[in-house]
Amino acid sequence: MRRIQSVLITALLLSTAAHAETPRDFLTRFEKEAGATASVERGGRFFASKQGSDWSCTSCHTERPTQPGRHVKTDKPIQPLAPAANAVRFTDTGKVDKWFGRNCNDVLSRVCTAQEKADVLAWLMAQK
């Protein structure tokens, strides 16, 4: 019985460890997909610029993503995007993929490349 218990606890610990992701994990994934390292500087420019629509990332997340933002259309408060200010950011694959999907389409009218995701995440991780 004890043995089963310890096996179960170990399995549980392993499965949680496998699912808990960090911003660094996502950066590694995007850099691998892009086949190149990220550029913090390029990510910062990307975050602030309008590209094909009326919006940039800063429209909702502000130029200082360590601070809360507001949805540009509905005014709904948005919690900070920078991991240093909001520990839940970039820790869940489903959410990361969902929001890159929605927001890249809104700002760029297309999907983001892996390089763009790597760059912008590297910049966000550098914001303290």
Binding site: K73, K98, G101, R102, N103, N105, D106
Partner: peptide, 12 residues
Amino acid sequence: LPKHFGTDASVD
């Protein structure tokens, strides 16, 4: 939802 009042609000 992919075209939700001018924004992409896609939900799986």
